[in-house]
C-alpha cells in the first residue's frame, strides 16, 4: 500500500468563458490553479477557503466528477486521472461524496431505501436480501429508524436528509469520502450532530475524509490537517494545531483572526483584509494574494510562490517565508 491514500499533483481546472455571437473562448475561469496535496489513510484533511476559491471544484475533481484540465490524481498509488468512465466504475466503490445541499442531493422520486440500495445495485454488491438488510443497518448507523426506509426525501428535515446522504455514501464501504460542506446548510445544533456522526463513522469504519468547509470552527473540530485555499491555490497546509496556533501565511492569519471569540471581555486583534477577492478569470500575477497583502513586496507581484515546507509538516506558499529561509 502506498504511503498516501490519495495524492494530487499540480491539479488544474479551467472553465472556458464563451462569448460573442459567433461563440469563441474569451478566457477561462481558473477555478483550480495548480493544487497539490496528499491524504493519508485514516486522516481528515480539511479544505478551507472563501466561497469561489475552488474547494468544491477540487472535491469534484478528486472523484473525477469533473475532468481536470491538467495535473495528476493518484489513488492508492495508481493514477486515475486518465481513466474513462468504465474504468472508473470499480473505483466508485472506494470514493464517495457527501453533498452540501441535502435538499438537492436526494432524488425526490425515490424512497430512502431505493436511494441507499442504488450504490450497491450498480456496483453489484450483495443480493436482494442482503441489500435490504444492509439498508436497515445503515439507517441505524446514521441514526434513523427502520420505518424511514419507505419514505420519500421530502418528508425529512435537513439534518435527517444529510444522514440519508451519508448512508448512501457508506453503502459501498468506501475508503475515502469527500465531504463537500456537509453541514453548512444545516442549523448549528444539527451541525454538531452530523459532525459527531461523521467522526464516529470514521473511527468505526476507518474512513478517510477530505472535508471541505468555509467554517473554521467546523474544520478545527474535525480535521487532522488543514489546507487553506485562496483563488484556486493552496496557500498553507499544516496540522490543525500548528495552523491555528502559528499561521504563517498572511491570508491564513487574517482568516483565523475573523473567528468570533465567545468572550466579550477578551479584546480581539482582528486583521482586516482590504478589497475583494479578485476575479478568477483574471487573477493577479505572481502571488494571487499580493494586492490585498500588507506585507507584499516586489517579488510577490511577479513570481508565484511555491508551496514549501517551511517547518516540519508545515507548508506555506509565501515569499515572506521563502525569503527568510534563503537569507
Amino acid at each position: 500500500m502506498a504511503e498516501y491514500l490519495m495524492e494530487i499533483k499540480n491539479l488544474k481546472k479551467y472553465f472556458p468563458v464563451i462569448k460573442g455571437i459567433i461563440p469563441r473562448q474569451a478566457g477561462s475561469v481558473k477555478a483550480v490553479d495548480g493544487v497539490s496535496f496528499a491524504v493519508k489513510a485514516g486522516e481528515t484533511l480539511g479544505l478551507v477557503g472563501e466561497s469561489g476559491c475552488g474547494k468544491s471544484t477540487t472535491g469534484r475533481l478528486l472523484l473525477r466528477l469533473l475532468e481536470p484540465t491538467s495535473g495528476q490524481i493518484y489513488f492508492d498509488g495508481k493514477e486515475i486521472t486518465k481513466l474513462n468512465e468504465k474504468e472508473m466504475r470499480p473505483l466508485r466503490k472506494e470514493l464517495q461524496i457527501v453533498f452540501q445541499d441535502p435538499y438537492a442531493s436526494l432524488n425526490p422520486r425515490m424512497t430512502v431505501e431505493e436511494i441507499i440500495i442504488e450504490p450497491m445495485r450498480v456496483n453489484r454488491i450483495g443480493d436482494k436480501r442482503t441489500r435490504g438488510k444492509r439498508v436497515l443497518e445503515l439507517l441505524n448507523v446514521v441514526g434513523l429508524a427502520n420505518y424511514h426506509a419507505q419514505r420519500y426525501p421530502h418528508e425529512f428535515s435537513g439534518g435527517q436528509r444529510q444522514r440519508i446522504g451519508i448512508a448512501r455514501a457508506l453503502a459501498v464501504n468506501p475508503k475515502l469520502i469527500v465531504c463537500d460542506e456537509p453541514v453548512s446548510a444545516l442549523d448549528v445544533s444539527i451541525q454538531a450532530q452530523v459532525i459527531n456522526l461523521l467522526e464516529d463513522l470514521q473511527k468505526e469504519f476507518g474512513l478517510t475524509y477530505v472535508f471541505i468547509a468555509h467554517d473554521l470552527s467546523v474544520i478545527r473540530h474535525i480535521s487532522t490537517r488543514v489546507a487553506v485555499m485562496y483563488l484556486g491555490r493552496i496557500v498553507e497546509l499544516a496540522s490543525y494545531i500548528e495552523l491555528y496556533q502559528q499561521p504563517q501565511h498572511p491570508y491564513t492569519q487574517a482568516l483565523l483572526s475573523a473567528i468570533p471569540i465567545p468572550d466579550p471581555k477578551k479584546s480581539k486583534n482582528r486583521i482586516i483584509i482590504r478589497g475583494d477577492v479578485p476575479s478568477p478569470i483574471n487573477p493577479p500575477d505572481g502571488c494571487h494574494f499580493h494586492n490585498r497583502c500588507k506585507y507584499a513586496f516586489d517579488i510577490c507581484r511577479v513570481e508565484r510562490p511555491e508551496l514549501q515546507e517551511i517547518r516540519k509538516d508545515h507548508w506555506a506558499a509565501c515569499h515572506l517565508h521563502q525569503a527568510s529561509q534563503t537569507a
Partner: peptide
C-alpha cells in the same frame, strides 16, 4: 443540473440508468 444526478454519477450509475 441537480445534485442528485451528480450523486448518481458519483455512485457509479451508467448513463442510461
Amino acid at each position: 443540473e441537480n445534485e442528485y444526478v451528480e450523486a448518481a454519477r458519483a455512485v457509479g450509475c451508467s448513463k442510461s440508468r
